[in-house]
Design a protein around this nucleic acid. Structure first.
Lengths: 190, 190
DNA sequence: CAATGACCGAAATACCAAAATGGTCATTAA
DNA sequence: TTAATGACCATTTTGGTATTTCGGTCATTG
């Protein structure tokens, strides 16, 4: 069977990026790992950055399908939103690549910052889409879907990533309850 | 009249910190600005870090009184919360020192990171206090005041600082409406 | 005796040679 | 003929070091 060089390259790059980060991964290294001459990489990808972007797009697609698999007609709308978003963030946390890049991004490599912005945008757009549908169906109050999606994401990140830096971390259920309280029910006593 | 060296030092430091940041401010510079020998600074403050902390404490106190001044028995509870928090963030945004340190903190100087954590804690505690009172009075649903305060702060920061990095910035009123929708009313259609 | 600035060790910075890296392209192997 | 390759090049990064700067001290001073 003919070997799929392109696939090998992508997988080698993914492995190396997630293990050592973007900056610390060299093209020679990727070529070695992929059992391929370095020049070959450039027949498939214009440069290192494009290779990263391709991998990010793959990752985003995987996340979306993962989220969509949680869809279930029998659960309430907000449960779905919660599950889907949680699944996506879980992905982000568990996936080596995402973690490494997330750390690297805080620091400063421009390509990585760019890639992460792209990543965040993809998530926000996806959530935004769900919100819009929910509004159309009259499940939730009308609101700007984009901002709402953004806020929901930030809130999750705050609860999952930031809060546990200085406090005992919250369980999946606690986070679900909190999101439900803050975003869906609201604090106000009717 | 006898000159107040201590006051001069604090003001010089504050000015220099907010103009050039903590790291880029030298003790010599402060001494010059304060018309004081360098050694004199050390008769009032143990070191540079303590000087920063003193200034931060002053800033926090100022912010609290500024927030408290917005209290008005005739406005609704959530209006008060909003006004108070907004005032505090406005302070943070407008005050040169806070901005400079905020930028510097993202980067990494340990003392600045520490000081900002202290700053954030102070805000969260203050909000937390207000929340607790509101719960006691039955204005809002029972909830963990600390987490709630934390979330509210994060949400504001997301709306004021982060959102406008990639989107048209929101007006005071828009932010007020959004906070009201997300936190108080909730998205759910009753 | 409060105030000071010359002084000190440590830490940051500037500098530069050597090594590494991203990307190209003439050569090779199929 | 064409896809694959790795030696090669220009540029960037690194590692080590000489130099400067800075936070903090303390003997001297007014």
């Amino acid at each position: 069977m003919e070997i799929d060089r392109r696939r090998n390259i992508v997988e080698a790059a993914e492995k190396s990026f997630s293990l050592f980060g973007y900056k610390a991964t060299t093209m020679d290294q990727i070529a070695k790992l992929a059992n391929v001459g370095k020049g070959t990489i450039y027949t498939f990808f214009k440069n290192k950055e494009e290779l990263l972007q391709f991998i990010m797009e793959e990752l985003i697609k995987e996340m979306k399908t993962a989220a969509e698999e949680t869809y279930d007609k029998n659960i309430s709308f907000h449960k779905f939103v919660h599950r889907a978003i949680y699944k996506m963030l879980e992905y982000r946390m568990e996936h080596q690549l995402a973690i490494k890049l997330f750390e690297e991004g805080k620091f400063g490599t421009p390509e990585v910052v760019e890639a992460l912005k792209y990543f965040e945008d993809a998530i926000v757009n996806y959530i935004s889409h769900i919100i819009q549908e929910a509004i159309n169906k009259g499940f939730i109050h009308p609101c700007d879907p984009k901002i709402t999606a953004y806020i929901i994401l930030k809130m999750y990140v705050a609860l999952i990533f930031d809060w546990e830096k200085n406090n005992p971390s919250l369980s999946k259920e606690e986070i679900a309850d909190l999101m439900n309280l803050y975003i869906f029910k609201g604090l106000a006593v009717s």
